[in-house]
Write a protein that binds this DNA or RNA. Structure first.
Length: 267
DNA sequence: AACAGCACCTGTAGGC
DNA sequence: TGCCTACAGGTGCTGT
């Protein structure tokens, strides 16, 4: 569900966790914890959270013992302080802070994961650079050697970290590029245009507190507004906002891909 | 390197 | 109402 803008929205709110101590940890679905519950418990219990940050689609909790706990929300995960009655059926993990209030990890589909990186070990080493960094993104796109389709490349977290299905489609539309264009065929002008489109689309969504289609909510259980501004994602059959051609849908890399065949020159 | 296919899970929407 | 299929903001594994 959540891509970079949704995770960024949550992380900004979770800054309130900095300096707080984890006094209890409860797990409702064992597989939520990749290294196993005892390992996570031994690192987190009685420890304070030093900083909360984001890397790609991951939330990073850096602890005072130097360890880093990563949280990935996958499709339906959310971290919330006040779960609804319905949410309570899907609490997979909960953290008590300073012996007072609780933060709940709610996840209908059970795909979300907590992982642990020990002090000194590189955290999430295989992730590519952040797509909000326009210069670095341009450099990455300029140096693509692969003939894979652009859509697949944008979804590859080793290339760029944080772009998912919604914003890949939106950025390709804004850049006027076909999702099936081979990455290595990008001209330098097109690479710059796409890098600019990515940062624009992602920053706009952050300003709108993310896109809520069904499950995504911030820590206060409130959805975002960006779904009201999507140009192509989920707009199959609707008129293109630029040329009024009906928006097409095609599966690329196993994912629904939405585009305007006219504006994006789909081959 | 890079596919496709499937696995992980549950809920919802639409057709009949 | 029920049954069935398709689909969903993601990633990771296996075999080819």
């Amino acid at each position: 569900m959540p891509e970079l803008p949704e995770v960024e929205t949550v992380v900004r709110e979770l800054k309130t966790l900095e300096g707080r101590e984890i006094t209890q940890l409860r797990v409702g679905w064992q597989k939520t914890v990749t290294p196993g519950v005892p390992v996570l418990r031994s690192s987190m219990l009685g420890c304070r959270i030093r900083t909360v940050s984001r890397r790609g689609k991951y939330i990073l909790l850096e602890l005072e013992n130097g360890d880093t706990v990563t949280v990935h929300l996958r499709m339906t995960g959310k971290l919330i302080f006040e779960p609804s009655e319905k949410d309570k059926n899907y609490v997979r993990l909960s953290l008590e802070l300073d012996g007072r209030d609780w933060l709940y990890f709610v996840d209908v589909r059970k795909f979300g994961r907590f992982d642990l990186f020990r002090s000194g070990a590189p955290v999430l080493p295989s992730l590519g650079p952040e797509p909000l960094e326009e210069k670095e993104t341009t450099r990455v796109l300029l140096n693509l050697k692969s003939r894979r389709e652009l859509k697949k490349i944008l979804l590859d977290q080793k290339v760029l970290a944080g772009v998912g299905n919604i914003y890949a489609d939106e950025a390709l539309f804004l850049a006027g590029l076909s999702p099936d264009l081979p990455g290595a065929d990008l001209s330098s002008k097109e690479a710059k245009t796409l890098a600019k489109a990515l940062s624009k689309v992602l920053n706009a969504s952050i300003a709108n507190m993310g896109t809520t289609l069904s499950d995504y909510r911030n820590t206060k259980n409130i959805g975002g507004e960006n779904q009201n501004y999507l140009k192509v994602y989920g707009q199959t059959g609707q008129p293109c906002p630029r040329c009024a051609t009906a928006i097409s849908r095609k599966v690329i890399g196993g994912r629904s891909t939405h585009f305007c065949s006219k504006c994006q020159g789909f081959s």
